[in-house]
């Protein structure tokens, strides 16, 4: 089992479940570094003092917070850590809600939980109770000087932990300024669109999706590494404005 990134205890009421937190995701993205077009040399990030115009050595770098435009308060790391308060080793679950009630928009990062020392039985109990009741535990977790709202839920045979967004971090859909068409879609258009949606209905199978773009990026890199110069296709023609009804009919026609 990989090393855990945090150890602690989940508590709810008087119950305590020792746990270890592990990453549940890994970054598979193809990473590039920045280079200078002229000579292929790596780009270096250099810290320049905005007053002196000279490079600043790492030892002379401090953290600051902008309190008014252009005015900064300097803080050192000890002050920041002290302000964060005591590092709690506990994830307190305040309530249990129905899993289906939590809109996916609230979920942020995912982690797996393993049982902590001597915690196998308590872990299994919590997992099975959540699974049977189809509920999710909502609580708070202090990690790396930040407090997170978290959800603890059963995922297959283990417990998953998700950090969540606070309500204040979500942008209200009503604040989007979306124009209305002069003529709303008529009943037939909506029926046909619904039929098209139904015809594309499937059971969600995550294993059937792959990052094919990433594969193509790696192909491009391999080709260039062996000296090939890729063709650049012509830029595409801008798409014509579409007749919705014709597109719906053609989509359904090609399905029957």
């Amino acid at each position: 089992m990989a090393r855990s990134i945090w150890n602690g205890t989940i508590t709810f009421g008087l119950a305590a479940v020792p746990i270890k937190v592990h990453s549940a995701t890994e970054d598979n993205a193809v990473h590039f570094h920045q280079v200078h077009v002229k000579d292929g040399a790596r780009v270096k990030q250099v810290r320049i003092c905005s007053k002196e115009g000279k490079e600043v050595p790492y030892k002379q770098v401090a953290k600051g917070y902008e309190v008014r435009k252009g005015e900064y308060v300097m803080l050192d790391q000890e002050e920041i850590d002290a302000a964060a308060g005591e590092q709690s080793k506990v994830i307190v679950l305040d309530e249990f809600v129905r899993g289906g009630e939590v809109d996916p928009v609230y979920y942020d990062r995912s982690y797996y939980l393993g049982a902590g020392k001597d915690g196998q039985d308590a872990y299994r109990l919590l997992h099975d109770a959540l699974e049977r009741s189809e509920r999710v535990g909502i609580g708070r977790w202090v990690f790396h000087n930040r407090e997170y709202l978290v959800a603890v839920r059963p995922l297959d045979r283990v417990l998953a932990l998700h950090t969540m967004r606070f309500e204040s971090e979500l942008i209200d859909a009503d604040s989007l300024d979306i124009g209305a068409p002069s003529r709303k879609p008529n009943r037939r258009e909506i029926e046909m669109a619904s039929k098209l949606v139904d015809s594309l209905h499937a059971r969600f199978d995550p294993s059937s999706f792959h990052d094919t773009y990433r594969d193509r990026v790696l192909d491009l890199i391999k080709a260039k590494a062996s000296g090939e110069e890729p063709d650049l296709p012509e830029p595409p023609e801008p798409e014509e404005s579409q007749d919705l009804m014709a597109a719906l009919e053609a989509s359904l026609g090609s399905k029957s």
Binding site: I48, Q60, K63, G64, Y65, Y72
Partner: peptide, 20 residues
């Protein structure tokens, strides 16, 4: 937080330099 120069409290700008 913003990076500041400890000596004079001036904000630090990060520039991109060619390593060659």
């Amino acid at each position: 937080f913003r990076q500041l120069h400890e000596k004079d409290g001036a904000p630090i700008e990060v520039q991109r330099w060619c390593s060659k």
